[in-house]
Structure formats: C-alpha cells, structure tokens
Design a protein around this nucleic acid. Structure first.
Length: 825
DNA sequence: GTTTCCCGCTTTTTT
DNA sequence: AGCGGGAAAC
C-alpha cells in the first residue's frame, strides 16, 4: 500500500512505534508526508484518532496536514484527529475546562490590537505614558509570556522593567476581568492546567501520541507544553535547524538540538533526500545557507535533474517589479501551460503585497493573499466583530469601548470617563456600570459578575481554589452546561459599593447622556437576548440595529460603499461558516469568534496565484515561486539601530528565511528586486535606493540567469532606464522621478489635490550582452529617449560601473549620457 | 459635550 | 495608508 512510496528512513519514521522520536527533516524531504503517513499508520494500528494530537505553527500548514491525512484515512477518521496550530489546540483545550483558568466558556481572545489598547489604557491610568510606549511594554510582556514568566514572576533590573512589571500584573488582572485571554495566555494557561491537581491528570492522559511539526520553532512554553501533553512518552517531533525563523517570538533552536538529551531512548532519523526541488534550486539553497556559521552541516541531495535555471530580475522600482512579476506569470501560463494555482509570490513584509495585488488585478488575474492586512483587521469588520464579542461576553471592556459610540450615538469621551470611574469605584465591570449609570433597574444577575476581581497579589492564580469542584472535567465536554445564566460562582466580596448603583450616586450623568446610554444598554440587552439564535440572523440584527449599515449608507461616499461591500462579504463568510460546520454546536457565536481570532487568512480556494510572506510559506511548496524584494534592507531586512551582536544573529535568521523561501520552489524560481523602493521612512540618507540582496551574490553562477533593467544616470530629471530585451520587444518605461521628495511632502501634495509628479524621461536601447560591447552597448545601436526621440550611439567609453555614451539625436545634436551601473547584475 | 479635521507616527515576520 | 491624539468647529 502507500508505504511503498517511502524511502527507508521515511518509512522507519512512519512505522516507528512508541517512545520519543526525533525526525531531522531537511527542506522538501517529505516531512509532511511522513507526518501524515505516520498519523494514518497510527490510526491503522488501532490508536484511537481522537487520542492523537498533531501540532503545527500556521493555519495553512494545519489545513494542509488535515487535507492530506483525509486522503489517507478518509474524512470520517481524519475529522477525529486533533490537528491544529498550537494556539487553536490550546483554545480548544481551554474551552473544555475554562473555569479552571478563571474564565467562562465564552472567553474572548484578544489580538495584538486589543492588547495594545488595553496596555495603553493601563499605562495612562498608572501615569506611565511618556516613559515607554504601549507597544514596547507589550512586547516585553509577550516576551515574558513566551518564556513562561507570569506576571507575579516578572522582574527586571532596569527601571523600565519595574514599570513593565506593574503593567503586566494589571494587564493580566484586566484580561481576566474581561473574561479574555491573549495569544500567550492560551498556551500558558493550558500549560498551567497540566499541573492542576484536578484537571491536570486528565489533560496529561488525554493523548496517546503527540506529533509536532517545525519543532525548531518552538519556544519554551511550547516545548514544555508538548512534553506534558505527551505524558505517555509517545512524542514525535520533526524539524530542521536551518529553517528556524521564529526566534523573535522566543523560539529556541536548542529545543530540537537538545531533544535527545531530554528524551533518553530517543530514536533519531535523518531525512536528507529532497523530493521537491530541482538540482539548481537546491544548489542555490545550499549555497545560501552554507554561509551561516551557527548550524549543523548538512547537504541535501536530489535525484531530480538540473531543471530550469533560476532567473533574477532587477527592476527600477517596486511598481515595475510588480508589473514584471505579473508579466512573467502570464508568460509561464502561455508558454509553459502553467496553472495560476501553481504560482506563489513571496515577500518579506506584508507591506509589499499591496502593489503586487494591484498589478495582478490590473491583469485580471485571480489571487489569494494569506495573512497580510487581514480582512478581519478592517475597521468596519472589527466594529461588527466587537459587537459580536460584546454580545458573547459583555465583560470584554475593550470591545465594549469600541462599539459604545460606533456609529456615533452621542456617547462621548466624557460620558465614558464617568462610567469608567463608576465601574472602578464599584469594582464592577464597565458593562455593569453602564447599566447602573443608565438608571436601569438594579442587579440583573449578569454572568459578567463571575469575573471576580483577582486579589491584588497575583500569585493567588496558582492555588486557584475558587474553582467549583464538581465540574466533570474531561469526557464531559459534549454535554457541557449550556451558557445559560448560571449563578455566579464568584465569591467576589460583594463589597459595599462606594456609589449607589441605582441612582448614579456621586458620579452624575446629565439627563441627555443618561438617556443615550440607556438606549445603548437596551440595545445590547436586546441583541444579547438573541445570542443563541442562528448566527447569520444574529449578525443581520447586529448590522441593522446597531445602525452600522444605515450610517454607512447615509454617507454615500465611495469609501462607504467599499465598507458596505466588506460587511456584505463578512455576512457571506458567516453564512459559509455556518454551512461548513459539521456539527451545529460548532456553528455558534463563540465558535465563530474563536475561529476568526485564530485564523489570519481568508483561505480562499485555490485556482489563483498565492501571495504570502516567507514566514507564512513555511511548510508549503509550489511549482513556481517568485521571491520579491530581494534587496538589502528589504530581504534581508536589517534594522539600523540594533547593536552589532544582535545584528549578526539577525542576519543569520534572515539567511535561514531566504533558505526557507528558496526551498519552497519545486521547478521554477524567479527572484526579483527593485533599485528604488518606497517603504515608509528608512535611513536618512537615500531612503529609496537599494542594493541587490547579498544573497544573490552567494548563488553560484551556474544556477542563475541575471537580467533586468539597468539604470542610467543622470538625465535631466530623474533617471533613464534601459530595458534588456530577450523577447525582441521593447518595453515602455515611465520614470516617476523626483525620488528625493519626502513621503510626507508627497502626501501633503496629494491631500492638497495636486497630482503626483511623473516625468517621463526614460530612454530605451537595444541591449544585447556580448563580448565586445561594454555592458551591452554598441556603437551604432539605436536608442530612444522620451524627450528627444530616437537616437544613435556614437561612442561608448568607460566600462564596468560607469560608462559614457554619446548619442546623436537627428536634428537636435549629440547628447552625452553618463550611464552609472550601481551593481553588476 | 460631541464631532470632525488635521498632524504626526508607524510596521518585520505570526497566533 | 491607517490610526490615535489633540485642537478647532458644530
């Protein structure tokens, strides 16, 4: 059967029985195949599928693993397997016994935006603003969480660290008060649960076999977590130190290097034969990664033929780069019969995707972007989601604050400030305070009260003894009590309210604001009453009763139209979600919110060109791969301010990233870069000028054909461009000129209504590399200049980086053009 | 008290 | 290009 198409080491990895197993799998060595076959093998051997856990890092990798496993064992069995990202898996586990972590089943998951807002608010209240940015504080908190350091354990020797420590404690307290977790908590809480006297034993006994993909990217918490979830000792990890690209998230290559030491009796299997790429692509990848010092020496081999050479193309700017990529795709489709679905465009930063997207759209080519400025990050979408989150969990303060005046309903900052004060004074949630301030009659037994304020000293978290002890823990997940209002288990010291909740007390609202607030509270209550209704109907209600749709319709601007279309798309996606859900219980509000919190991509069906960051591409492969933005400063992306020691390490990681990118390609690899790139503000010298990526120099000449536009300078204004042929055609070039104009000047000019300056000052020439022509220029060659028309080269002098052309333009005399080549191609 | 407009800052990479 | 903060306009 299917074991036949495995090579001996692969086969051993698949069939290896119980106990720890380390699979060192080079890029393209059939790693996913080994994992999926191993999963299938375990199932066939009689291991119950729901007792097998397979963990990945990205949703895309998880989806692929599930799909391929489905082919092997059938949909029914595959569905029972636990396959997912670390975070999705932990969210799922946490929902089984949320009380053990001080949460309710409807807990919300805060994304980084929510996190930042929360930290920002805390810093303001603690008067820490100005000393450090919320972003910086959050980054240290996240870092701590990656290392498993809780708020109470956090300490730092610098004075900023002391601030962070206080912020961290308060942040954690507020998160729990909001019945919310952040990404780090998902892992940390589950890790903590494995030690829990009640839940822990069952959690640790839950899985018979655990498999971890991309183990080189695990951080400390993930490493520990995996060990505990694989308490039976049947832990198989797969990884490759050359593909470690998540050190910024706390990943530690030591986890894989020391795996054998931590797991006595571990069997180690190496997979070194590459089945993915052609020899030339592999040569290039090997050459690039070989320059890293901190790595285990290894060399992949393949039995594939040399294949097509890699192509590098240097383009004048990012706009032209995008156009060239699209043109190359069209050529591949027309001349080689490639499918669009075979093609992936990779880039270092999401910011690069927009222009590529525009170029694809201009040609009408279908595409799917994975990650990027996510659909769910758009303001109007986040508004709707915030509504839904409040409906699911009104304790969610961040979401509540977001929607309270969206669309504008006359509840401004001052009203909110007062209600916030009231909430703090009463020690209640903001939502309860709103209800009180609105004059709503008394105490609705709201489940939000369950979120007891944690004791000021955070260590209490551990000995969490408030947990109701009669919870049937594992195994009872399916008949979990429905989220109907349950009496608050919280022993929250029903402290004397400093403010009389009924009458607003010391903090008085005027009658106007009070009325408005009351209408809002009523609205949320009405919507909450429907939270068990069909999701799509609930969303319809939210869209209209919140007047989100009406407000946008009233605006009538093109932008509002866009936003409405997005809302429509959201409604469609929700309908899809409902339809796809196999189990109606999985189609509810909470399930939906969880999914969109953890899934970054819109996961459009294939058929189009795939676009994603290199990070997102990890674990995937494509017949045709474009790697764009190959310039120093873009890829590798280096930040100036970093100290030198860190820079070396960063550059090594960037190199691994390049290695990952190159090894995604099966048959064709096309590299592109731009001489000028408009990307925020970079250094202060010439912000737009780039040098080709240093990795290009590492790729041996036999692997690669270097082509591209060459820059000729200076012309009257801007630069002229020379386009190499190859297909016998000239290509029109337009110079956008004025590269020294600053970004803000340009923005201002555009806002003032001025059109962007664009000077057409290009020249076109025949470019045919040959022995006798200096850099491809020959006397007698014809040249076309945008302003002066067609001319003829009279003399060529100089060579290498700089040469001088005298061009005769009939009727206008000769003109000297100095060609300066910044970098040999 | 609320809304709106304008300025300045920001972005690596993912869950 | 998008967002938050601050100041001026409603």
């Amino acid at each position: 059967m299917y074991l036949d198409d495995l090579n001996p080491p692969q086969r051993e990895a698949v069939e290896y029985g119980d106990g720890p197993l380390l699979i060192l799998a080079g890029a393209g060595s059939g790693k996913t195949r080994v994992i999926t076959h191993r999963l299938a093998h375990l199932v066939e051997r009689g291991v119950r599928p729901w007792r097998i856990l397979a963990v990945t890092f990205t949703n895309k990798a998880a989806a692929e693993m599930r799909e391929r496993t489905t082919h092997l064992v059938g949909a029914e069995e595959a569905r029972k397997l636990w396959i997912g990202t670390f975070h999705a898996t932990c969210a799922r586990l946490l929902r089984l016994t949320p009380e053990a972590a001080g949460l309710t089943r409807d807990f919300n998951i805060y994304d980084d935006d929510d996190q930042r807002k929360l930290v920002g608010g805390i810093m303001k209240e603690l008067n820490f603003s100005g000393h450090l940015t919320p972003r910086a504080a959050l980054s240290r908190i996240d870092q701590a969480k990656n290392e498993g350091i809780t708020a109470s354990e956090f300490s730092a020797d610098d004075y900023l660290g002391d601030m962070v420590a206080r912020i961290y404690v308060e942040y954690q307290r507020r998160l729990r008060a909001a019945n919310a977790v952040d990404f780090g908590d998902l892992l940390l809480e589950v890790l903590r649960l494995t030690d829990d006297p009640e839940v822990g034993p069952q959690l640790r006994a839950r899985f018979d076999h655990v498999l971890v993909d991309e183990f080189q990217d695990t951080n400390r918490v993930q490493f520990e977590l995996v060990r505990r979830l694989a308490a039976r000792g049947n832990l198989a990890v797969v990884g490759d130190d050359d593909q470690s690209i998540y050190s910024w998230r706390g990943a530690d290559v030591k986890n894989i290097v020391d795996f054998e030491r931590h797991h006595p009796g571990c069997r180690t299997i190496k997979l070194e034969q590459n089945y993915r790429s052609t020899q030339l692509i592999l040569d290039a990848a090997n050459a690039v990664i070989a320059r890293n010092v901190y790595r285990k020496k290894k060399r992949l081999f393949t039995e594939h033929g040399a294949g097509e050479p890699i192509v590098y193309r240097l383009c004048p700017d990012e706009r032209q780069e995008a156009a060239d990529v699209v043109r190359a795709i069209l050529t591949l489709v027309e001349d080689e019969g490639r499918q669009l679905g075979d093609v992936a465009i990779l880039y270092r930063m999401n910011a690069q995707s927009r222009i590529l997207e525009e170029a694809l759209r201009a040609e009408g080519l279908p595409y799917a972007i994975y990650g990027s400025t996510r659909f769910f990050d758009r303001a109007e979408i986040k508004d709707v989601l915030a509504w839904l989150r409040v409906i699911a969990n009104p304790a969610d303060e961040i979401s509540l604050l977001r929607i309270v005046n969206v669309p504008p309903r006359g509840i401004g900052d001052s009203t909110i400030d007062k209600v916030t004060l009231l909430a703090r004074a009463r020690g209640s949630s903001l939502w309860d305070a709103m209800r009180a301030a609105a004059g709503g009659a008394g105490t609705v037994p709201s489940r939000t009260r369950l979120n007891r304020p944690l004791p000021q000293s955070a260590p209490a978290q551990r000995g969490n003894d408030e947990r109701s002890s009669n919870l049937s823990l594992f195994g009872a997940e399916h008949d979990w009590p429905s989220p109907s209002p349950s009496p608050s288990p919280s022993p929250s010291p029903d402290e004397e309210p400093t403010v009389d909740p009924g009458d607003g007390g010391a903090i008085a609202l005027g009658s106007g604001p009070k009325k408005k607030l009351s209408a809002f509270v009523q609205l949320v209550d009405d919507l909450r009453a429907k939270r068990e209704a069909k999701l799509s109907e609930l969303v319809e209600e939210v869209l209209h009763r919140s007047t989100l749709v009406e407000a946008l319709t009233a605006q009538g601007t093109a932008e509002a139209e866009d936003r409405l279309a997005n809302l429509e798309e959201l409604a469609n996606s929700i309908a899809d979600f409902e339809r796809e859900a196999l189990d109606p219980a999985e189609a509810g509000l909470t399930a939906y919110l969880e999914r969109i919190s953890l899934v970054s991509s819109t996961d459009v069906e294939g058929g189009g060109v795939s676009m994603m960051t290199v990070h997102a591409a990890k674990g995937l492969e494509f017949p045709v791969v474009f790697i764009t933005g190959l310039e120093d400063g873009t890829f590798p992306l280096v930040r100036e301010e970093e100290d030198r020691a860190a820079e070396t390490q960063q550059l090594e990681e960037e190199r691994r990233l390049a290695y990952v990118a190159i090894t995604r390609a099966r048959e064709r690899l096309i590299l592109t870069g731009a001489e000028h790139r408009r990307l925020f503000r970079q250094g202060n010298d010439d912000p737009f000028e780039r040098r080709p990526s240093r990795y290009l120099a590492d790729i041996p000449d036999h692997c690669i054909v270097r082509t591209g536009t060459r820059r000729v300078a200076p012309d009257a204004r801007g630069y002229a461009r020379i386009e190499p042929r190859g297909d016998g055609r000239y290509v029109e070039r337009e110079d956008h000129g004025d590269h020294d104009e600053t970004w803000s000047e340009r923005t201002r000019a555009r806002r003032a209504g001025a059109s962007a300056p664009s000077a057409a000052t290009g020249i076109r020439v025949d470019y045919e590399p040959s022995e006798d022509a200096a850099d491809g220029f020959r006397v007698g060659q014809s040249v076309q200049h945008a302003k002066f028309g067609v001319g003829r080269v009279k003399t060529v002098s100089g060579s290498g980086a700089s040469l001088k052309l005298v061009v005769d333009f009939p009727g206008q005399g000769a003109m000297t053009i100095v060609a300066r080549f910044l970098q040999p191609l």
